[in-house]
């Protein structure tokens, strides 16, 4: 278990100090795949580096399995680091060493015998599917293969926690998926706690069980990934999600809904409905149209998968008499997972 208790990190660059992390507290339970998202400079990378002591908090405590990491002696910290693996955006492989030697490095640090090292290296090479690259130098590998070596050497020493610093940001989409799949597999097979920092929301949607949103050193929101994306509580999170989606409702559509309804003397609204899981989508709208004297028009719809659970999203315009529309909106709100009013006629 990883616990942050009122953690603050400040950077001094001579004259002024910058708060990279500002009084952050939360807990990451064992076996989770935990995402920390935010734009660059949000402090997520600094926060993650307090877990293995690469950054020291100025205030607060960081606990890994009950040990306060930022109060350990140098020797104790080295031992804790031995069981916390780390992978990087640009892989950071040792270029002068072969794949096998790269993977053997943490074991040598841990003082393992030659026989143990050979056995573990072969084991972990099989896990990441790179047996045939054992004696290659990193230069000869593709990006995906380099990251597999990174993962292999991060896990080889009986690792409990895996820290991932933008693990797929330098990879193409296909390779990204295979790396994420590998992380998911390893986490579930060995019960490893995985912490991923990334600016790619798709990574979080695809494998994280829980996620935290950071901005400017502050923890904005933390929740189950599914809820975080389908029902974000904070406006920053909503903005972040919206800016990552390739869909925004065109102005012209909104304008048309507005003018046509004004002409007809209708009250109107544009709503975003989110359906969770495999709850059927149509009946809610059909029922609303039947129950209330309103017209409903579907403007946009899509289905995506978060944590491999489908989630549907529908943009509709709804119009009619004021009180009918309001009642229908309440009805819809009670029957879908999440309702967001995007635009509503001002009275």
């Amino acid at each position: 278990m990883i616990e942050f208790k009122h953690v603050s990190v400040e950077f001094n660059n001579g004259k002024n100090s910058v708060r990279a992390v500002n009084d952050v507290s939360f807990t990451i339970p064992d076996g989770e795949i935990f995402g920390i998202v935010g734009s660059s400079g949000a402090g997520k990378s600094t926060l993650m580096r307090t877990i293995n002591g690469l950054e020291k908090p100025d205030k607060g405590e960081v606990l890994v399995d009950g040990k306060v990491v930022n109060q350990l002696s140098k020797g104790e910290l080295r031992i804790v680091r031995g069981h916390i693996g780390m992978i990087f955006q640009h892989f950071n492989l040792i270029t002068s060493r072969t794949v096998a030697e790269n993977i053997a490095f943490p074991l040598k640090v841990a003082g393992k015998s030659k026989a143990e090292i050979n056995k573990s290296v072969d084991n972990v090479l099989a896990m990441v599917d790179l047996e045939d690259k054992k004696n290659e130098y990193p230069e000869k590998l593709s990006g995906g293969q380099k990251q597999r070596v990174g993962i292999a050497r991060a896990l080889v020493n009986n690792t409990k926690v895996l820290l991932c610093d933008e693990p797929t940001s330098a990879l193409d989409p296909e390779t990204t998926n295979s790396i994420l799949e590998l992380l998911r597999k390893l986490s579930s097979e060995f019960g490893i706690t995985v912490v991923i920092i990334t600016h790619e929301l798709s990574v979080v949607k695809s494998i994280c069980t829980h996620a935290a949103v950071m901005d400017n050193g502050d923890l904005i929101e933390i929740n189950d990934t599914y809820k975080l994306f389908t029902a974000p509580q904070q406006s920053f999170t909503r903005k972040l999600i919206a800016s990552n989606e390739d869909f925004t409702l065109p102005e012209s559509v909104i304008e048309e809904v507005k003018t046509s309804n004004q002409k007809a003397g209708n009250y109107w609204a544009i709503l975003k409905l989110v359906y969770a899981g495999d709850s059927a989508s149509d009946p809610v709208i059909a029922n609303a149209a039947k129950k209330f004297d309103v017209g409903i028009n579907v403007i946009h719809g899509k289905i995506e998968y978060i944590k491999q659970i489908p989630t549907g999203e529908l943009h509709i315009s709804i119009f009619g008499k004021h009180e009918e529309v309001k009642a229908a909106m309440d009805f819809i709100g009670n029957n879908v997972f999440h309702l967001e009013v995007l635009y509503e006629q001002q009275i």
Binding site: L77, I79, R81, G82, P106
Partner: peptide, 12 residues
Amino acid sequence: GVVEYAISTGAT
């Protein structure tokens, strides 16, 4: 990054 990695393994 390689130095940072080495530190993260607990190397002396």
